[in-house]
Amino acid sequence: MTQQVGYGSTANNPTSLPSILCLHGGGTNSMIFNIQTIRLQRALSSKFNFVFLDGPFPGPPGPGVLPVFESCGPFLRWTRSPSDATLSEETRTLITNACEKTEFVGVMGFSQGAKLAAGLLLEQQVKGRKGFKFGVLLMGVSPPMVSGLSEEEKATRINVPSVVVLGKEDPWREEGRRLYDEFWEEGKASLLELGIGHRLPTLDFENSMIVDEILRLYSETREET
Rank of each mutant, 00 (worst) to 15 (best):
P18S: 02
L21I: 13
L21N: 01
L21G: 05
C22M: 15
L23A: 08
L23S: 02
H24S: 06
H24M: 11
G26A: 09
G27N: 05
T28N: 07
N29T: 11
N29W: 02
N29M: 07
N29S: 06
S30Q: 12
M31H: 04
M31Q: 12
I32R: 00
F33R: 09
F33L: 13
N34P: 03
N34D: 14
I35H: 11
Q36H: 05
Q36T: 03
T37R: 06
I38D: 00
I38Q: 03
R39S: 07
L40S: 02
R42S: 10
R42V: 05
R42K: 15
R42W: 14
A43M: 12
S45G: 02
K47G: 00
F48S: 07
F48E: 04
F50P: 07
F50L: 08
F50Q: 07
F52V: 05
F52G: 02
D54A: 04
D54G: 07
F57C: 08
F57L: 05
G59L: 00
P60F: 12
P61V: 03
P61C: 06
G62F: 13
G62V: 15
G62N: 09
G62H: 13
P63D: 14
P63L: 09
G64V: 02
L66E: 14
P67H: 05
V68M: 15
V68Q: 15
V68R: 15
V68D: 11
F69R: 05
E70Y: 14
S71A: 14
S71Y: 15
S71T: 15
C72G: 01
G73H: 11
G73V: 06
G73Y: 03
P74K: 13
P74D: 02
F75I: 02
F75C: 06
F75N: 03
F75R: 01
L76Q: 06
R77T: 07
R77Q: 13
T79H: 09
T79L: 10
T79A: 03
R80F: 12
R80G: 08
R80C: 08
S81P: 00
S81H: 01
S81L: 05
P82Y: 11
P82E: 10
P82R: 04
P82M: 08
S83H: 03
S83F: 01
S83Q: 14
D84V: 12
D84F: 06
A85P: 04
A85L: 07
T86N: 14
L87E: 02
E89M: 15
E89H: 04
E89G: 01
E89A: 15
T91F: 04
R92H: 04
T93E: 09
T93R: 15
L94V: 15
I95N: 00
I95Q: 07
I95F: 02
I95P: 06
T96R: 05
N97R: 08
N97Q: 09
